[in-house]
Amino acid sequence: MTMQPVDAAVPNGGFRVPKTAELVAANLRRQIIRGELVEGDSLPPEHQLTETYQVSRPTLREAYRILESERLIEVRRGAKGGARVRLPDADVAARHAGLMLQFERAELSDVYVARAVMEAPAAALAAADPNKEGLRRLEENLAEAERVLSDPLADQSRLPLLSRNFHTIVVEMSGNKTLALFDSMIGTIIDLASKNFVTTQSTMRRPKSTATALKAHKKLYRLIAAGDVEGADALWRQHLDGVSETMTDVVPGTVIDLLS
Rank of each mutant, 00 (worst) to 15 (best):
Ile66Ser: 05
Glu70Phe: 01
His47Gly: 04
His217Asp: 14
Pro152Ala: 00
Arg57Lys: 07
Ala216Ile: 00
Glu22Val: 04
Gly14Phe: 11
Glu70Leu: 14
Glu140Met: 09
Ala154Phe: 08
Val10Ile: 07
Ala226Gln: 14
Tyr221Asn: 09
Gly242Arg: 05
Ser244Ala: 14
Thr178Met: 11
Ala123Pro: 09
Thr203Arg: 06
Leu99Pro: 00
Thr178Ile: 13
Ala79Lys: 03
Arg84Pro: 02
Tyr221Trp: 12
His239Pro: 02
Ile169Ala: 10
Arg65Pro: 02
Lys219Tyr: 10
Ile169Ser: 01
Arg105Cys: 06
Met3Lys: 00
Leu23Gly: 11
Gly98Lys: 02
His239Phe: 14
Arg61Trp: 09
Thr188Ser: 04
Pro121Ile: 00
Ser244Gln: 12
Ser109Ile: 02
Ala26Asp: 15
Arg84Asp: 10
Glu144His: 13
Gly134Ser: 06
Glu36Pro: 02
Ile186Asn: 00
Ile32Gln: 00
Thr254Pro: 04
Glu74Asn: 10
Arg206Asn: 05
Ala9Val: 15
Ile190Lys: 00
Ile66Asn: 10
Glu144Lys: 15
Ala8Arg: 09
Leu60Asn: 05
Asn12Pro: 00
Leu258Glu: 00
Phe166Ser: 08
Lys177Val: 14
Leu37Thr: 04
Val55Glu: 06
Arg61Pro: 06
Met247His: 12
Thr199Glu: 15
Leu87Met: 05
Asp110Tyr: 15
Ile169Val: 14
Arg205Gly: 01
Ala83Cys: 07
Asn196Arg: 02
Arg95Phe: 13
Glu74Val: 04
Ala145Asn: 01
Val111Met: 04
Asp191Trp: 14
Ile66Gly: 03
Arg77Ala: 11
Ser109Gln: 07
Ala8Lys: 10
Leu28Trp: 10
Leu135Ala: 11
Lys208Arg: 09
His96Cys: 11
Val55Asn: 04
His47Asp: 15
Glu51Asn: 11
His239Asn: 10
Arg16Val: 13
Gly175Tyr: 06
Pro58Ile: 13
Ala9Asp: 13
Lys219Phe: 06
Leu37Trp: 15
Glu172Asn: 08
Lys218Arg: 15
Phe103His: 14
Arg105Trp: 03
Pro45Tyr: 02
Thr2His: 12
Ser109His: 08
Ala97Lys: 00
Pro45Val: 03
Thr254Trp: 01
Ala124Asn: 09
Pro160Ala: 13
Arg115Lys: 13
Lys218Met: 02
Val111His: 03
Met1Lys: 11
Glu133Met: 12
Phe182Ala: 04
Gly78Thr: 09
Ala126Val: 10
Ala120Gln: 04
Ala211Pro: 02
Thr199Arg: 14
Pro160Glu: 06
Glu74Ala: 07
Ser157Gly: 06
Ala116Asn: 05
Asn12Trp: 04
Ala21Thr: 06
Leu181Phe: 05
Arg76Thr: 14
Ala116Met: 11
Thr59Met: 08
Arg206Ala: 09
Ala21Ser: 15
Glu74Leu: 10
Leu135Val: 09
Ala90Glu: 11
Ala94Gly: 15
Glu104Met: 01
Leu138Ile: 07
Ala122Trp: 12
Thr178Phe: 13
Asn196Leu: 04
Arg57Tyr: 03
Ser194Asp: 11
Thr248Leu: 05
Arg34Thr: 13
Arg115Pro: 02
Gly82Gln: 12
Leu23Met: 13
Glu70Trp: 07
Ala94Asn: 08
Ala126Phe: 13
Arg61Leu: 05
Leu220Lys: 03
Val24Thr: 05
Lys215Cys: 04
Val148Tyr: 14
Asn131Gly: 05
